[in-house]
C-alpha cells in the first residue's frame, strides 16, 4: 500500500481571471501519474466547478486533492457565506449569481449538479455565516 498523494492549493477569491488554475495543475499532475483520461476529465470538471464556485460565491478558499490507490478525493473548503438551502442549490438552474457574474459566463446554476454528475460521492457541509466544505470522490476501481 503506497501513501496517498496530496495536492494542496490556495484559491484566491479576488481574482476571477486566475480562477481555475488549481484545477489546471491537478489535471497535469494526474496526467503525469498516468490515470485514465476519463477519470482525469471527471476530476478536472468537478474540481473546476467547485473552484469557480469558491471564487464567485465564497471569496476563495483551500482546495485539496488526495490521490490514493482506490480513489481521487477532492476537498474544497471555504469561509464564505454558506449555502442556506442545499437541496435548492443542487437543482439545475438554481443560482444566486448576479448578472455581473453571468456576463463572465457563470451563473447558469449548473455547477453543483455537474459536480454531482461527474463524481461517485459528494457531500456538502455548510453553515450560513461560517463556510462550506465539499468532499467529492471518484473511484478508480
Amino acid at each position: 500500500m503506497t501513501e496517498p498523494l496530496v495536492f494542496r492549493f490556495n484559491v484566491d477569491g479576488s481574482d476571477f481571471t486566475s480562477a481555475g488554475q488549481a484545477s489546471v495543475h491537478v489535471k497535469k499532475n494526474l496526467r503525469e501519474l498516468g490515470l485514465p483520461p476519463e477519470i482525469i476529465r471527471r476530476v478536472s470538471i468537478a474540481m473546476y466547478e467547485g473552484e469557480i464556485n469558491m471564487v464567485i460565491h465564497a471569496n476563495g478558499g483551500v482546495a485539496e486533492v488526495i490521490v490514493s490507490e482506490d480513489a481521487v478525493e477532492i476537498v474544497l473548503k471555504d469561509q464564505g457565506p454558506g449555502i442556506p438551502n442545499v437541496e435548492q442549490a443542487m437543482q439545475e438552474g438554481f443560482s444566486t449569481a448576479p448578472s455581473s457574474v453571468q456576463s463572465l459566463g457563470f451563473g447558469a446554476g449548473m455547477g453543483l449538479p455537474n459536480m454531482k454528475r461527474y463524481t461517485d460521492t459528494m457531500e456538502i457541509e455548510t453553515e450560513v455565516g461560517v463556510g462550506t466544505t465539499i468532499r467529492m470522490k471518484i473511484f478508480l476501481k
Partner: peptide, 22 residues
C-alpha cells in the same frame, strides 16, 4: 455559459462561444 458547456462531455469537440475571458 461555461457550466452549460461543462455539462456536456464528448470527445474531440468544438466549443463555439461569444464569451471572451480566460
Amino acid at each position: 455559459m461555461m457550466s452549460d458547456v461543462l455539462a456536456y462531455v464528448k470527445d474531440q469537440a468544438v466549443l463555439l462561444t461569444g464569451l471572451v475571458n480566460s
